[in-house]
């Protein structure tokens, strides 16, 4: 029997509401709004209330997929990264770096977002960088 309440921050958008995760015997079962959090003061939108669902969802991908012959197939990370790199290279050399756009994310850290834009600018060579949660 192991119960925990774990404070965290909602990763769905840039607002950054304080949430509490309820964990029972190692399983994430519920999300609650953190009542003393200065951002949301005990309120959440529907996405925040259901944060735990995307963690425990059956639909969640647990391995990279590569589309072969029109169908997604399980792949290793090495294969997936290799494929992405090759395709990106091909597109950049055929159509120029500005044919690529990079979308950063609210679900990753500040540092990862920094790396993402660095990748766009320094590796691909484009200023086409935006963020999925530019609310």
């Amino acid at each position: 029997m192991d119960y925990k309440i774990i404070p965290s921050v909602c990763s769905y958008c840039g607002t950054g509401c304080g949430v509490l995760f309820q964990v029972m015997d190692g399983k994430l079962t519920d999300t609650l709004p953190m009542k003393t959090h200065p951002v949301n003061e005990g309120k959440l939108c529907i996405k925040g209330w259901n944060l735990h669902e995307h963690v425990v969802s059956d639909k969640r991908l647990t391995t990279p997929l590569i589309k072969k012959n029109g169908e997604f197939q399980d792949a290793t990370w090495d294969e997936a990264i290799q494929t992405a790199a090759e395709k990106l290279k091909g597109i950049v050399s055929a159509h120029g770096p500005d044919s690529v756009g990079v979308l950063a994310s609210a679900k990753i850290t500040n540092e990862e977002n920094y790396l993402t834009q660095k990748f766009a600018r320094a590796v691909i060579g484009t200023n086409n960088v935006d963020h999925c949660a530019r609310l």
């Binding site: 029997m1 119960y3 925990k4 309440i5 404070p7 509490l20 003393t36």
Partner: peptide, 14 residues
């Protein structure tokens, strides 16, 4: 009190 917030907490033998 956890990270400066009064939060619900479970207390057991452990």
């Amino acid at each position: 009190m956890v990270q400066g917030h009064p939060l619900p907490h479970f207390f057991t033998k452990n």
